[in-house]
């Protein structure tokens, strides 16, 4: 279980990126963090990954406090961040240096198989498309078998078709070990396609505005009535979160939700 306990982050320049974030994610749950840009989504993931220190509050994974990079936490950044001097297979194996060679090989081959890149194992990252590179990054994170996997808008730079394919690859990998997943996105459809719960954030400073459960069965169809209803609920909530505090709710959330 991952517990975020009254987390706050104020950067050195005084920017209040996060204020009093509390969230409990049970093991194996997929949570989508949704919010406009600048509401602290990346900051939150960096705190959980141990890359930055919180100004206040704590993070606990299965009862253990997290203050730095933790073996149970993996992250996929917004950019693939592959090491250009390593082959695809060696990139996936990057975090497995401590394992015996044979096991490392087997794990890497299996993960590449799962993301559909088995035949690209020996290529350079520069020879892959953006979507393929992001798949390698996902495989690199999964192969280390983290308890918590953080994904920071991993598909935002890709076209809708590629994105749908990657959602399938991601769920296939998740099915195997069922890690807890925190997925940052600004795409409502993505949240509905993947998550068990959507958490809507509100900017300046970043706070949790609303939590929407998504109790839909998998595999999910984006056009099913359940998915569409869930998407509408999230959109309405997002729209509210983007309005200044205290402003009266307007009657037509859908129309104004289109701009962001």
């Amino acid at each position: 279980m991952l517990i975020l306990d009254h987390l706050s982050k104020t950067y050195a320049d005084g920017t209040r990126a996060l204020a009093d974030i509390s969230l409990t994610v049970r093991a194996g749950e997929i949570v989508a963090l949704i919010g406009g840009s600048g509401c602290g989504k990346t900051t939150l993931l960096r705190l959980i990954a141990g890359l930055d220190r919180a100004s206040a509050g704590g993070i606990h994974l299965d009862g253990e406090g997290i203050a730095g990079p933790h073996p149970g936490v993996g992250i996929v950044f917004q950019e693939p961040r592959l090491l250009p001097w390593l082959s695809v297979a060696d990139n996936v194996a990057f975090g497995l240096a401590a394992l015996p060679r044979a096991e490392r090989r087997a794990r890497v081959a299996h993960a590449l198989e799962r993301v559909g890149l088995a035949e690209h194992a020996g290529r350079w990252p520069r020879d892959l498309s953006g979507g393929q590179q992001q798949r390698v990054a996902i495989a690199r994170a999964f192969v280390a078998a983290p308890k918590v996997l953080l994904l920071d808008e991993p598909f935002s730079a890709l076209d809708a078709l590629t994105r749908a394919g990657l959602h399938r690859h991601l769920l296939a990998l998740w099915e195997e070990s069922r890690p807890t997943v925190l997925l940052v996105t600004h795409d409502v459809a993505e949240a509905v396609a993947l998550a068990d719960r959507a958490v809507v954030l509100r900017p300046k400073p970043g706070r949790i505005d609303d939590t929407i459960p998504l109790p839909l069965s998998r595999p999910r169809q984006p056009s099913s009535p359940g998915s569409e209803a869930a998407a509408r609920t999230i959109l309405a909530s997002l729209d509210r979160s983007l309005r200044p505090e205290g402003a009266a709710d307007r009657a037509k959330p859908d129309a104004s939700a289109l701009w962001w």
Binding site: A49, G50, L51, P69, P71, G74, I75, F77, E79, R81, L83, F94, G95, A97, A144
Partner: peptide, 16 residues
């Protein structure tokens, strides 16, 4: 710096 962070995430020692 972004690549260095990949190393930090995988908890490489300074030498590694």
């Amino acid at each position: 710096r972004k690549l260095v962070e990949v190393g930090r995430v995988f908890r490489l020692s300074r030498l590694a």
